[in-house]
Write a protein that binds this DNA or RNA. Sequence first.
DNA 1: AGCACGCCGACT
DNA 2: GTCGGCGTGCTC
Length: 731
Amino acid sequence: MLFDNDRDGSGTIASVLVPVAVPGPYTYKVPPGLAVCPGTIVRVPLGPREVVGAVWDGMPEPGIDPRKLKAISHVYPAGPLDADMRRFVDWVANWTLSPPGMVLRMVLRSEEALEPEPPVAGVARVEGAAPDRLTPARRRVLDTMQDGFAWTKSGLAGAAGVSVSVIDGLVHQGVLEIVSMSASPAPPAPDPAYNAPALSPAQAAVATGLVAAFDRGYAVSLIDGVTGSGKTEVYFEAVAEAVRRGRQAVVLVPEISLTAQFLKRFEQRFGVLPAEWHSEVAPRRRARVWRGVASGDVRVVVGARSALFLPFHELGLIVVDEEHDTAFKQDDRVPYNARDMAVVRGHLAQFPVILASATPSIESRVNADLGRYTRFVLPERASGGALPELHAIDMRRDGPERGRWLAPALVAAMRETLADNAQSLLFLNRRGYAPLTLCRSCGHRFQCSHCSAWLVEHRFRGRLVCHHCGHSEPVPQACPSCGTVDALVACGPGVERIAEEVEALFPQARTLILSSDLPGGPERLRREMKIVEEGGADIVIGTQLVAKGHNFPLMRLVGVVDADLGLAHGDPRAAERTFQLLAQVTGRAGRFSGGGKGYLQTYSPDHPVIRALLSSDSEAFYAAEIEARRVAGLPPFGRLAALVVSGPDKPATEGYARAVARAAPPDAAVTVLGPAEAALAMVRGRHRFRLLVLAPRQFDMQGYLRGWLSRVPRAAGGLRLQVDIDPQQFL
DNA sequence: AGCACGCCGACT
DNA sequence: GTCGGCGTGCTC
C-alpha cells in the first residue's frame, strides 16, 4: 500500500511482501519518480542481497525506525498482481499457516518472466540485394521469405529445408541482414467452435449443467464418471464456455498425466495446443507462459498444481482433473492441496470450479452430499462398452503353491489373453524384488540404519534399498549378523519377482516392467509406455504409475497381485486410497477394446473395499467408508481433519507432538504416530513424527494450531506443520 | 593458524 | 529462503 506521508519530506513509503519467511510485509521507501500501487512487482534490498517482492495491501508496521528503511530499487514492468490474486495469496498463507511471502514466492517463481521478452536475433531480406549465384538452396530460402517477414535463422533453415550455413552465406553476401525480432506474437487462442464433439445424451446433460454454473458465479461441480465415460470431453465444453465468455481457464492435472495424449485431445477439440505449465517446461517457455497469462494472450493453461499460482487477470474457470489424486498436495515449503485452493480461488473471484474423477475423494463426495457441490454422474462408458468384469481370487483357498505369487485362475486367464493377442497387466504396488530379506540361519532382518524401515532388495541393481529415505547398500554375500554365507532369503513379492515368475510361465511372451525406479529414468518410461500403447508388449507388470494417465488401448486383462496391500496400515485414508487405486487400475482393462476382465488376489474377499470393487459399486464403498469413519469416532471427512507433521529427527520433536496431543480440546481426536507408522502412512514424506488431529466441525483448527505454534520454542528448530483441512466450511 | 561444517538469528 | 557470524573440531 502507498502512503502519502510526505509532509516531513521523507518521501512515500510502501508495504512490500518479500519472499522470505517473515510474518508480514516489510516497509520500504518509494524513490521519487517511481510509480507503485498494490500488486506492483518490485525488487528491494533485503539484508545483503536483493529480492523480488510485491507491493502489498495494509498499513506498514508501526515502530520501525525510519532510518532503517531502504528504498525500492526497481519496478518490474510485469504485473501488477490484481486484488483477487493478492487476496488469494493472503488466504493461502493464512490457511497453510505459512508466511505470506512464501506463498508470493510461488507466484513469482519465474524471475525471467518479470522483464519483457528479450528480442531475438532474426534475418530479413535486404531490399534489392541479390546473391552472386542463385543455387537451389538459396532459391528455396528466398522463396520461403517471400512473405517479407523476418525469420529466425533456425526456423528459416527448417522451413526452407537447408542448413543454417546457407543462411549465414546469404548474410555474408549482404542479401539478408540480421535484425532484432520483437517478442513472439500472441499464440492463437483455442477456438470453442473448432471441433465440438457429438456428446451422448448423458454427457450432453452434464455439459449443460456445467455451462449453467457460469451464470451463478461461484459454483463447484463434481463430475463423478466411471473410467472411459468421457469426463474430459464434457469438461472441455465448460472450457469452451469460459473462452466464449472471454475468460481464461486453467485445467489442473496430476503431474504424471500431463501427457502428450492429453494435449493432443485438447488440440483435437480446440484446434491449438494449450499452454503447458509444469516443472519440466524449460525456463524460457515458462517465462513466456507466465507473461502470456498475465497479459491475457494465453487463454487456457493445462498444468500441474503450481499453475494455480499463475497471475491470471480474467480467470473464469478452474478444472481439477482426477481431483482425488494426491499429486495435488504439496508437502514441502507451503503445504497446500491445489484441489482445495482451486475451490478457494473460485470462491474469492466468484467463478465456477469443476472437480472430475472416476473415484472422487471422500471429502468431495461428502461436500456433494451436503449440497455444497453439485454432483454430476456419468455412469456409463462413452463407447458403450461394459466395465471390466471383476473376480476375486481367494488366496486362502485358490492361491498358488508355495514360492509362487500368481494363482492358477489368473495364470489361466493370462494364457487365454495371450492366445487372443491381447495384453495383460499385472499390478503390484511394490517396487523391487522382495520387500523383506532375512537370514535363514539366524533370522536377521535387513533394516535401514537411518529410519528403521525394511530394506527392499532390488535384484536388477544388486542392492538393498530403503524406500523411505533412499539409502541403499550392496546385497552382502554373508549375513552381517551371524556370518553365514548364502543364507539370505527374499520374503514376499515385488514387481521384479513377479516378472521372474511370468518369464518362467510364459517364456515366449514379451514381458515389460513399468516401475518408476528402473534405470533410464522418465525418458525410458515414456518410451516403454508408448511400446505398451502400440502393442509392443504382451504382459506388463507395473506399480501404481500404470494407474494414472496413460491409456492402454489393447489391455484386456488386469490382475491385481495383492489387493490387500495398503488396506492394513495406520493411515485413516488407507481404504479410500486402495479403492481409488484399484478402481483406476482395473478400469484400464477393456477400456478401448470392448470387454475386459480383472482378477483381485486377496486374503480378505469380504472386506468392504474388495466387495465394492467386485460389484463395481462405488456407492457401496462410499457408504461403507463414511460409516466406518463414524464408527471409529472420526468426524466425517469433508468437515475437518488436520495433519500436523513434525519434521526433524530430534528427540524434542516427539515431545512437542505429544504435548500438542495433550493440549487438544476434549472433542478432538488426536493421534501421534511414531516413526515406523509414519513411514508406512506417508508414502513420500520423510517425516519422522506425525501428529494426526481430527477435530469436530465447529472447531477452529487454524486458530488452535496457530496458538500452539506460537508457544513452541524456537529451539524446536524447523518444526513444521502440515495442515490438511478441507476448507469448505470456511467459505 | 586455517578452514569446513553446523547452528542460529536477522532480514524493513 | 539465504546470508553472515560464530563456535566446534579437525588437519597442515
